[in-house]
Each structure stands twice: as C-alpha cells, then as structure tokens.
C-alpha cells in the first residue's frame, strides 16, 4: 500500500533530514520501497521547509506527495500551508507548542517535541524527538529501522543524545496510541 508523508517546518529545524531518515529507514532497514523528495532551492534555505516521502511495498510510479496520508508539522506556517492538503481521514502530527490548531482537524496527535528537546539541553534534536513520536504513532516503520537510520545519519559523538531523543519521542507515541 502507498503511504504519502509530508514533513513541514521552518529552515534550520532539520525538516529535510527527517524525510531523508524516514525514507532511508524504510529502504535500508525495513526492506520497503521509498522515495524522498526534498524541497530544493531558495525555500530550503530559511523560511518554510518541507520534505516528502512515499513508502510502499510495491513499485512506486509517481514519486510526489500530493495529498499526504500523514502530515508532520513543526511550525504554524507549515501547518497553515499544508493542512488543507491532508487526505480525508489522514493523520496530522504537530508540535503542540509551535502549532495552534484551528477547528475541524480529525485525527491529531500532539507532542511537545521542542520542549522535550530543550529539557534534554539540546533544542537541535527536536526533529529526532518528533521522528520517534511519528514512528510510535504511525507504526509504518519499525523502531529498530528508524533507530539505525538516525544513528547512521549523525556524527558519532552525538549518537547517544539522538538515541535518547528518539526514544523519548517514541515512548510518547506509544502512550498516545494507548489513549
């Protein structure tokens, strides 16, 4: 089955990396097909940033995300820009401190990813907390796969930090599932 995922936020949050790690995890460690298409050009260097992932067990023909099944947003701007694209019955995942929801969203999963990262003393890992949460909530990828992909993407001295960030987010995701 084809699943379309869009990550949105502002430049510097690591939004492009989130897409890259997600698709990489699917291809290299979960034996699926996946395509990652980053936003490219001026918009990727400051301002609104987004990245797109298509995951499927079958061959993927059209590589782009038009109406995401899952939308992960970490800024108000990205939320307002991309929320209207969400597929009917699609899942919205937000950083609850950074996104003020309007009415009418169906299935919203909220996490304070940036606050959790700040509690760890490293705001920069907010995107990894969010990836952990995304993994726990959606179950599209195995935790092992996303962990391997995260650890492969960061310098060795930051591995422990990122692993902790991922785990904290993942636990929140599992908790959300139970609620």
């Amino acid at each position: 089955m084809r699943v379309e995922i869009k990550f949105g936020g502002y430049g510097g949050q690591g939004i492009i990396l989130m897409g890259n790690i997600t698709a990489r995890a699917a291809v290299l460690y979960d034996n699926k097909n996946a395509i990652f298409t980053p936003s490219y050009g001026p918009e990727a260097r400051g301002g609104a940033a987004s990245s797109n992932v298509v995951i499927s067990d079958d061959e993927i023909d059209y590589p782009y995300v038009t109406h995401p099944d899952i939308l992960v947003v970490m800024s108000q701007g990205a939320y307002e820009k991309f929320a209207p694209l969400l597929k009917d019955g699609g899942k919205l995942i937000v950083d609850e401190d950074l996104v003020k929801l309007k009415n009418g969203e169906g299935d919203v999963a909220k996490v304070a990813a940036t606050r959790i990262a700040e509690e760890m003393g490293k705001r920069i890992v907010a995107n990894i907390v969010m990836l952990g949460f995304f993994t726990g909530v959606t179950k599209i990828l195995s935790y092992e796969a996303i962990k391997k992909a995260v650890l492969a993407a960061v310098p060795e001295r930051f591995r422990e930090l990122n692993e902790e960030a991922l785990e904290r987010g993942y636990k929140k995701g599992i908790e959300w599932q139970k609620e």
Binding site: N20, A23, R24, V27, N33, A34, I35, F36, T37, P38, Y40, I60, P63
Partner: peptide, 10 residues
Amino acid sequence: DESTAHMYEK
C-alpha cells in the same frame, strides 16, 4: 532531469 536527479530511492 532535475526531478530524477534530486529524488532519493533504492
């Protein structure tokens, strides 16, 4: 083309 150049895939 630009699309094929910048997309990541297996």
